[in-house]
């Protein structure tokens, strides 16, 4: 009996030591941690890595990104498991704010989705409008009984956008997603692009990830449609609501948001990838919206990503930080 007690004591002691020790080490002997769940497209282009380095050089905060689809990012935030989130799905964001889990939304950047496909363009979508292009792809897929379209299928922002586009082209997503020419990848953007490349199929991609893969010669897909209003892609950041989720690191989340909208970071976003890809992967949005110019792009952003005519309705702002919206 004595032996068992001894053994048990050792097991408990060692477990407490390892668990407690590693926890203490990672929790207290390092900087305060700020957890941000983020959409995969931002992560996969490497932009967030660059942002993280610049941010950590400036603040004594350990920034950690969890790259998941927008859908999962919102779930994590709803559970109070992360402190902030970076996403690109205005409709989901609106729901999230209205659900009371988020606050302090700021639009930080935009770019465009693009429809890419094989160089031979078997469906002949080159030069079409988005709606026409989708119709041609459906016809091509149905008549040739071949894989014509690969979808993210993971509840991400890109996936949400795709559903919107199908609806706009008067297709029922539930119906076409069952058809044999339609493949649902259920994974990140790179994996989806690789799959489309293998199948010789079309897909909807954010421009950043597409350019990165095309430049690495991983894929031979060609970009057919870009920079139209219905392909607009807007990224925003939100803090998780502190009143609803008291355990979150709210003040650091605000620091992070302030950093993202700072001129330094906006410039970083603007310039990211310019040298490597010959064009910017992302465009800064803060100055543009602040100046409230009448340019077409500002109007598109307002139409697409504003909630009740503003990037963040007053009830979801934090009165302690008015500077976010000045």
């Amino acid at each position: 009996m004595k032996t068992w007690i001894k053994v048990l004591t050792i097991a408990v002691a060692a477990t407490v030591l390892i668990v407690g020790g590693s926890y203490a080490y990672f929790q207290y002997f390092t900087r305060t941690r700020l957890l941000v769940s983020t959409t995969t497209s931002l992560w996969e282009t490497g932009l967030l890595n660059a942002t993280e380095q610049a941010f950590e050089a400036k603040y004594w905060i350990d920034l950690g990104f969890i790259p998941v689809g927008t859908g999962q990012a919102i779930q994590q935030a709803q559970g109070g498991n992360v402190d902030a989130l970076l996403v690109h799905s205005p409709s989901n964001e609106t729901q999230f704010l209205q659900g009371g889990d988020g606050s302090c939304r700021k639009i930080i950047a935009y770019n465009f989705f693009t429809i890419v496909g094989p160089a031979s363009d078997p469906a002949g979508i080159n030069g079409s409008t988005t709606t026409d292009a989708l119709k041609k792809i459906v016809d091509y897929g149905r008549s040739n009984n071949t894989r014509a379209w690969v979808s993210r299928g993971d509840g991400s922002g890109t996936h949400t956008k795709e559903k919107t586009l199908w609806a706009k082209a008067s297709y029922s997503y539930t119906q076409i997603s069952q058809e044999s020419w339609y493949a649902s990848a259920g994974s990140g953007m790179s994996a989806t692009l690789n799959m489309a490349n293998e199948f010789g199929a079309y897909t909807l991609s954010d421009i950043g990830t597409y350019l990165k893969l095309a430049k690495d010669h991983t894929i031979s897909l060609v970009q057919y449609l870009a920079e139209t209003k219905d392909l607009l892609n807007v990224y925003s950041v939100m803090a998780v609501n502190q009143t609803r989720h008291p355990s979150v690191n709210f003040s650091n989340a605000i620091t992070f948001i302030k950093y993202l909208i700072s001129d330094d970071c906006q410039q970083l976003i603007d310039n990211y990838g310019k040298d490597e890809y010959g064009e910017s992967l992302f465009h800064s949005a803060v100055q543009l919206l602040k100046q409230n110019s009448t340019s077409q792009i500002v109007q598109w952003i307002k139409d697409y990503a504003f909630i009740n005519g503003t990037e963040c309705p007053p009830e979801y702002r934090d009165p302690r930080y008015p500077e976010l919206y000045s």
Binding site: F26, R33, L35, T40, W43, E44, G46, N49, E52, D62, G64, F65, I66, P67, S187, G188, M189, S190, A191, N194, K212, L213, D216, T218
Partner: peptide, 24 residues
Amino acid sequence: GGFIAHVTELLTTGIKLEIDSNNI
């Protein structure tokens, strides 16, 4: 773990993440 860079990233999650980012 959530494969957070510099915090919980491991060999296996690193492989998954780098493939997702196309860093073969």
